[in-house]
Design a protein around this nucleic acid. Structure first.
Length: 829
RNA sequence: GGGGAAGUGGCGGAAUGGCAGACGCAGCCGCCUCAAAAGCGGCCGAGGCAACUCAUGUGGGUUCGACUCCCACCUUCCCCACCA
């Protein structure tokens, strides 16, 4: 051997191209050059410190999509930013006695470096960080637009309070009765808080899910369930001995004659009044029960399933039967759903049944199954059926009875048909520092006054000592003490900050126009770029971020700030998690795969290929060191396949040999086909938005195998040269560094990422010969090699000639012949 | 309790009505090497000497033909969960 062949040195190749791409701003959008727009983005990260492998999977996929779409001729906007406000920064600041801004900035610097280290193609000229005044002033501006429309309001209500994080939480942020962030049990507290009236949009948020075919079905279903629409009726029971009534909501008006008690939540406003009219003993019991409910956490009250309750001593009058029913206070009625009171129908509701049995309340059967009416006596029957013992409504079907009873209640002004939602208004106040100050001033005479637009942003005061208790901003006199913008008298500034989900409900619009200092974004930019064509991120945001964003976008649409469809994300894709050797990665387990180490050990091209190859992107992937070494091997094979052509191809000039050559042999034909099979897969997986690049990369393996064996027999074939010249284009979206390096070494002056992707060529994809499977009665009995263009007659004749086929036919007559061109013949005897 | 997704070799997966197991990982054998690594070539679901038979969670069904479609069941994972 005269000299050592140069081997694939991923470290220097990756370093070289990352700095060159950054210098050339290679991923900038092109602007108006007639190409169709494509807005694709990944969910922006929280700057927690280090990029983890889950981010890497998200961005490997997102970057492959962006690069594919660019090479397919689109003007691609692919931005990145930072979800930079939030509790971890504040907690880190408390623990270390530092400024959350400093901690956040440091993390952003590190993670931006790591995202670049992955060789991703983001257009950094659109970068945003939500903690910067030039971003959050527009949070405040948008809040004021919501406020002036009555969609932002302050109200005292029982809310979720996390004692660990010392702040309130939105419903969506309570999981299994615990804080989504720290896992601490959530308490119930009555506090005055800011809400956004998302319930105003409940109907549209629900109905429009049907107009999002580009969203995963499970995500739409989960949102549907979360919104939880139910149709029913609301009607009132008069309280005996009191000039007041209690409204109840029900979806089962057909069971109304089965009511044997009325059940109230402990917080129901009528409870205080009842205490006045009942005996002192009952009043004392009511007080004690209400107190015991108050002291219990939401989880204890609702998830422990034990149904507690007491009789109040008061009675209500059934609006239809005019009978007396006892009024109970129970643990299982929710204060903030429906009316906070329910009609108790033990015979036809599981929960009422359980409660009635425990407290010896009677059950009255009023709906029976069509067949055996006796069968349900003494048991709970929750299905629809035929009514009995229900005055004029007896003998009706449940469905008809619901209509008829509702009509009667409406005619007599006793009630009305109503729709209820599980969705509650979105609580956005947070008693924390590191978030957007709510731009409101509380004036003793004027009430809640909006901070004038010219005074925005209300800046977060710097240098606040954070102790992790109390409301940090409330303890800063220079911040809180102000004058009323309306009357000029002394007033107090609102000290709550916003939930960070406010920031991420519209950040995709700020990306479009990140430096606009007169508006959050311009209508022109929104018209040019919205909607987001592809959004890729984890499934954990299904009912949080993705629902809030839809709400905001509909509001913007109604105000005319965006045009076109009133949904922000036309296509949504959830990538799966990444495990390591079947286990979750965590610092405590010590099994975290670091981006920096991986870049050093295997290179990021191999990492990107592995993450896309190991599973379909929506599935959970398992990171193994052996697995990634398979992708490293592939890249070495790619390199070696191209290596002998560096000098020759460069000398021949980049543009030569781009046309599909004539295949001189079956092997060459197969090689050319393998090239176009990769292209076909890549294009189809991209445009279908299935993104199963695992199959594309498997075909790339096959191509490289074919190139390796072709090189073993002939090194001068035009087909092999064509494959070598085309390979960098094929792999550019998935392994961008090696693609660029090979492209340059093969004599191309311009970046491979500006090339058009290889258009799958039908001539290259077609085959001359196919293996026809011959079945007899559905079982494979022969395989015959035939010309691809074979006629049906001829194929059947050849099939019948096969000795094994004849043996299995055993002389019987063929009753039926199935012929699938290019695939199989089935002879049914 | 409700809803959703999924069950295929030792492992990740491919095939979505037409040759089950592409491609890779692991393993085994060989070549190369003084040796090892790398690389290259081969084998790799089970049974059988073979012809073949069996095999995609289980049981049915539709079909010339089912991993794929339908029904029932089992298992796993995820989400919601006293929402009247």
């Amino acid at each position: 051997m005269l000299f050592m062949a140069e081997s694939y040195d991923f470290a220097s190749i990756e370093r070289k191209w990352q700095s060159r791409w950054q210098r050339d701003a290679a991923a900038r959008v092109r602007g108006k050059d007639g190409r169709p727009k494509y807005y694709t983005m990944e969910m922006l990260p929280y700057p927690s410190g280090d990029l983890h492998i889950g981010h890497a999977k998200n961005y490997s996929l997102g970057d492959a999509v962006a690069r594919m779409m660019r090479m397919l001729g689109y003007d691609v906007l692919h931005p990145m930013g930072w979800d930079a406000f939030g509790l971890p920064a504040e907690n880190a600041a408390i623990a270390r006695g530092i400024d959350p801004a400093a901690w956040t900035t440091e993390n952003i610097l590190n993670m931006r470096r790591q995202i670049r280290l992955m060789g991703t193609s983001y257009d950094w000229s659109h970068e945003i960080a939500t903690c910067e005044p030039e971003f959050y002033r527009w949070n405040q501006w948008l809040f004021l637009r919501l406020f002036e429309r009555g969609l932002a309001y302050k109200r005292e209500a029982p809310v979720n309070w996390c004692p660990q994080d010392q702040t309130v939480l939105a419903n969506e942020q309570v999981q299994d009765g615990r804080c989504w962030r720290c896992g601490h049990l959530v308490e119930r507290r009555n506090l005055s808080q800011w809400f956004l009236r998302i319930t105003e949009y409940a109907d549209r948020l629900l109905a429009d899910l049907d107009r999002l075919p580009g969203w995963p079905e499970r995500t739409r279903t989960m949102q549907r369930n979360w919104i939880g629409r139910s149709e029913g009726a609301t009607f009132a029971f008069a309280v005996d001995g009191l000039d007041a009534s209690v409204e109840v909501f029900t979806t089962r008006l057909d069971t109304v004659y089965g009511v044997t008690f009325l059940a109230l939540a402990a917080e129901h406003p009528i409870v205080a009044e009842l205490r006045r009219i009942v005996s002192p003993e009952h009043a004392a019991e009511i007080e004690a029960f209400a107190q015991s409910m108050k002291s219990k956490s939401e989880l204890e009250r609702t998830s422990l399933m034990e149904k507690h309750g007491i009789f109040t001593g008061a009675y209500a009058i059934h609006p239809l039967s005019r009978t007396q029913v006892p009024i109970w206070i129970t643990s299982y009625v929710l204060a903030d759903y429906g009316t906070g009171a329910v009609m108790g129908v033990p015979a036809h509701d599981e929960r009422d049944f359980e409660f009635a049995r425990k407290h010896a309340l009677p059950a009255v059967t009023v709906v029976v199954p069509p067949g055996d009416a006796q069968a349900v006596e003494g048991r709970v029957f929750v299905e629809d059926g035929r009514l009995i013992a229900s005055d004029d409504f007896s003998e009706m079907s449940s469905e008809r009875a619901r209509e008829a009873i509702a009509a009667t209640l409406e005619a007599r002004s006793l009630g009305r048909r109503t729709v209820n939602y599980k969705l509650r208004d979105w609580l956005i106040s947070r008693q924390r520092y590191w978030g957007t100050p709510i731009p409101i001033v509380h004036c003793p005479s004027c009430g809640e006054v909006a901070v004038p637009e010219e005074d925005l942003p209300v800046l977060l005061p710097p240098g606040v000592t954070l102790r992790g208790e109390g409301s940090p901003l409330a303890s800063v006199p220079e911040f809180v003490e102000t004058t009323c913008p309306s009357c000029g008298e002394p007033a107090r500034r609102e000290s709550d900050t916003m939930d960070t989900f406010f920031d991420t409900s519209w950040y995709y619009l700020r990306y479009l126009d990140p430096h606009n200092d007169t508006r959050p974004w311009s209508l022109q930019r929104a018209q040019q770029w919205m909607n987001v064509d592809q959004y890729i991120g984890g499934a954990e945001h299904t009912v949080l971020h993705l629902l809030y964003s839809r709400f905001f976008y509909k509001f913007f649409h109604d105000r005319g700030w965006v045009t076109g469809p009133d949904e922000p994300f036309s296509h949504l894709f959830h990538q799966g998690m990444v495990l390591r050797d079947g286990e979750k990665m965590s610092k405590s387990r010590g099994n975290v795969v670091g981006i920096d180490e991986t870049a050093e050990k295997t290179g990021v091209d191999a990492m990107r290929l592995f993450l896309l190859y190991v599973t379909p992107p929506e599935d959970t992937s398992d990171w193994t060191d052996e697995g990634i070494s398979g992708r490293v091997r592939l890249l070495h094979r790619v390199w070696r396949a191209c290596l002998p052509f560096f000098e020759r191809a460069a000398a021949a000039g980049g543009e030569n040999g781009r046309a599909l050559p004539q295949a001189e042999s079956p092997q060459e034909k197969a090689l050319l086909r393998a090239v176009h099979v990769v292209a076909k897969s890549a294009v189809e997986e991209t445009l279908s938005r299935r993104f199963h690049y695992n199959t594309t990369i498997a075909k790339l393996d096959e191509l490289v195998n074919a190139m390796t064996s072709a090189a073993g027999t002939t090194s001068e074939s035009p087909a092999l040269l064509y494959a070598v010249r085309t390979l960098p284009v094929l792999i550019a979206p998935f392994a961008p560094h090696i693609a660029e390096e090979l492209w340059e070494r093969l004599g191309n002056p311009q970046s491979v990422h500006f090339e058009a992707y290889l258009e799958p060529d039908e001539r290259a994809l077609e085959v001359d010969e196919v293996t026809l499977v011959v079945q007899v009665n559905g079982k494979v009995r022969a395989r015959i090699l035939v010309p691809a263009s074979i006629e049906q007659e001829r194929a059947l004749a050849l099939a019948l000639e096969d000795p094994n086929v004849r043996a299995h036919l055993g002389g019987k007559t063929v009753r039926k012949q199935i012929y699938v061109p290019g695939k199989l013949v089935n002879l049914v005897a």
